[in-house]
Write a protein that binds this DNA or RNA. Structure first.
Ligand code: MN
Ligand code: MN
Ligand code: ZN
Ligand code: ZN
Lengths: 147, 147
DNA sequence: TCCTGTTTGATAGTTATTATCCACTGATAA
DNA sequence: TTATCAGTGGATAATAACTATCAAACAGGA
């Protein structure tokens, strides 16, 4: 959530070229609190930038994400993963290899009820992320994704 | 995590036909603790059931999910959603319309460190799910998904 | 065993995302 | 200011995960 000057400085510091498109995507996203999709951003932006391409929005979001300027709300996992344990429990997800380990901890089951006006909460899930034992040990042999 | 007899009874109770494929998918998933994808289950199952189709695995997982017998580990969201707020915060996700609201609550930022052997945790996120104010009010006009 | 609504398997279609490719541009140096 | 050029953007093809379609086979009750 940075203003235009902070953005310019950050790009300069990180030696990443700051283009009109990158600034536009970041400022549009900054102005919204509805956690838009790439497509939704594209639809808003194309009015002011008719030549903008959807692929550019995707590439820009990825760049901004790598720079630590935007976050992805849901897990970046492309594939759904299933579990025969339907009882309440939580997960540790390895960002390098995709391994998912179970966490059974009653302290995570009872979290403070959030105060989101009018929202009727039916449950919650906690995702810890980091490196699994194997990937933490491995120097750089990143698999990125396992089936 | 039910045995064969419990599964038979549950299908009978819910009046859902129990096929060989449904039993096979459920038992394969029950026997694994690696949170497999549909494709991974299919790869394991096709050895014993060479005529099994991947589409059937998808349909079966959906059926089992609706019956409350399997859980999806990650959000079923098809589209990635982005956020310019990279500071630690959490989210309430409406299961009816896809709306995502921010939750700022320091009590959710400091959760008990989970004891997953060897796992190097770098962060966590909490997803509450339920119905947003609008959808909780609306009788049944479910939008299912908004862009 | 027979009957009928459901499910399966094969496959085509869809959707979100990524890769490719080349003209163009932002950042630096002259 | 202009020249240079690595990196970027736009157009579009390709990919990956999933979903729809539909005829044939099946499950479960009569
Ligand atoms: Mn689990
Ligand atoms: Mn947020
Ligand atoms: Zn790992
Ligand atoms: Zn809603």
């Amino acid at each position: 959530m940075k203003n235009r000057e902070e953005v310019r400085t950050l790009f300069k510091t990180k030696k990443v070229p700051l283009t009109h498109q990158r600034l536009a995507v970041y400022e549009e996203l900054s102005g919204r609190r509805d956690h838009p999709s790439a497509e939704a951003l594209y639809e808003s932006l194309r009015k002011a930038y008719p030549s903008l391409s959807l692929a550019t929005v995707y590439k820009t979001l990825q760049t901004l994400h790598e720079m630590g300027m935007v976050a992805r709300v849901d897990s970046p996992a492309a594939q759904a993963r299933y579990d025969a344990i339907v009882e309440t429990h939580h997960h540790a997800v390895c960002t390098a290899c995709g391994r998912i380990e179970d966490l059974f901890d009653p302290r995570l089951d009872a979290l403070p009820e959030p105060k989101a006006a009018g929202f009727v909460i039916s449950g919650h899930s906690v995702h810890f992320h980091g490196l699994c034992a194997k990937c933490a040990k491995a120097p750089s042999t990143r698999t990125i994704k396992e089936k």
